[in-house]
Structure formats: structure tokens, C-alpha cells
């Protein structure tokens, strides 16, 4: 019997980069051109096998508009991983990504797995962010890097597989294997409350 681990993941990034589309592609394998903009946040789950475990992703998708950033701590608090998405055709979105990396470093959970996703790679001809630059940046902060296309279902599954692999396996596999183990953390008292 495989143990189920619940992994809280949050998606961060500028508005319109395709966060919700990535989640939608991953969870429902479906792409909607007019996906409703996320307000506040939305929540989806998907279970994926990883080694001899089942990873149940609890994906919090956040709103992108800057004024919603102050809500983000509610979402990345207790997260096992954060996916920071930028749009390869929007240089601005890459700058926002850097801001998120910094914020996670300062206020996020200590051993949070960070993944950087350069989305809309189907629009290569109007690319503004070179892949090399993004990749080097990711390496510099020891983050996962992948270019995705929610539209063409490119690398979306892989993104989450990479995250799965980075999650340290259960230390005590024979412990209580019947009960699902939760990797979500209670908010550390030191982390600042919302804002």
C-alpha cells in the first residue's frame, strides 16, 4: 500500500503569465483561453505517483495583480513548494519573479522547494526573456527551472514531477504507513502575519 503525502504548493507570479492555465492543464489536462482571472486565490488538488509514494498536490493558485501580493503569505505559509511563473514574452514578468524569490527567501518556509516556470514557450518568436538567462538565474538560487506551455501541454507534468523528486522522501517509511503523512507545516511563529 502506497503512502499518500499531501504537498501544499503555491503558484506565484505576475498577472496573466498563465498560472491558472498551468494548474488547469496539470489537474484537468484542459486549456481554456478565457480562464477566469483568479481573485484572492483558488485551490485544486491532484495526486501523482512518485517512487513508492503518492503525492497529493494541494495547489493554491494566487491572483497576479500587484495589489494582491500582500495576500501571498497566506498561501505560501506552510507550502512544501512554490512555483514562480513568468511569461517568456514579458520581461516585466521576469522581474516580478525575482521579487518573489526574494520575498520567499525572507518570509517563506525554510526548506521550501522553489521552481521557476517560463510559460508560453509556444510563443518563442516574440520571446523577451532568453532561456539561458532564466536558467542561470535559477541555478544561482538552486531552483528548479523549466519552460512550459500550458497551451500545448508542454512540460507541465514534468514541472510537478521535478518538484516531487526534490521533496525529501519520508524519513520513517515503516512508521504509520496507513495514515497519510502531511508535509504541510504550521506557520512558524517568527514569520510575519499577512502583509
Amino acid at each position: 500500500k502506497m503512502a499518500i503525502r499531501e504537498l501544499k504548493v503555491c503558484l506565484l507570479g505576475d498577472t496573466g503569465v498563465g498560472k491558472s492555465s498551468i494548474v488547469c492543464r496539470f489537474v484537468q489536462d484542459h486549456f481554456d483561453h478565457n480562464i477566469s482571472p483568479t481573485i484572492g486565490a483558488s485551490f485544486l488538488t491532484k495526486t501523482m505517483p512518485c517512487g513508492n509514494e503518492l503525492h497529493k498536490f494541494l495547489i493554491w493558485d494566487t491572483a497576479g495583480q500587484e495589489r494582491f501580493h500582500s495576500l501571498a503569505p497566506m498561501y505560501y505559509r506552510g507550502s512544501a513548494a512554490a512555483v514562480i511563473v513568468y511569461d517568456i514574452t514579458k520581461l516585466d514578468s521576469f522581474h516580478t519573479l525575482k521579487k518573489w524569490v526574494k520575498e520567499l527567501k525572507e518570509h517563506g518556509p525554510e526548506d521550501i522547494v522553489v521552481a521557476i516556470a517560463g510559460n508560453k514557450n509556444d510563443l518563442g518568436d516574440i520571446r523577451e526573456v532568453p532561456m539561458k538567462e532564466a536558467k542561470e538565474f535559477a541555478e544561482s538560487i538552486a531552483a528548479i527551472f523549466i519552460e512550459t506551455s500550458a497551451r500545448n501541454a508542454v512540460n507541465v507534468e514534468e514541472l510537478f514531477q521535478k518538484i516531487s523528486k526534490q521533496i525529501p522522501p519520508l524519513e520513517n517509511p515503516e512508521g504509520d504507513s496507513n495514515e497519510s503523512f502531511k508535509l504541510t507545516r504550521q506557520p512558524a511563529p517568527s514569520t510575519r502575519r499577512c502583509c
Binding site: 498577472t15 496573466g16 481554456d32 483561453h33 478565457n34 480562464i35 477566469s36 482571472p37 495583480q65
Partner: peptide, 12 residues
Amino acid sequence: RQIELDLHRTLT
């Protein structure tokens, strides 16, 4: 810009 982004994603 943000308005344009959201316009087509309203009450779909």
C-alpha cells in the same frame, strides 16, 4: 492593460 487581460475572462 490589466483591463484588457481580464475583459475576456469575465463571467465566461
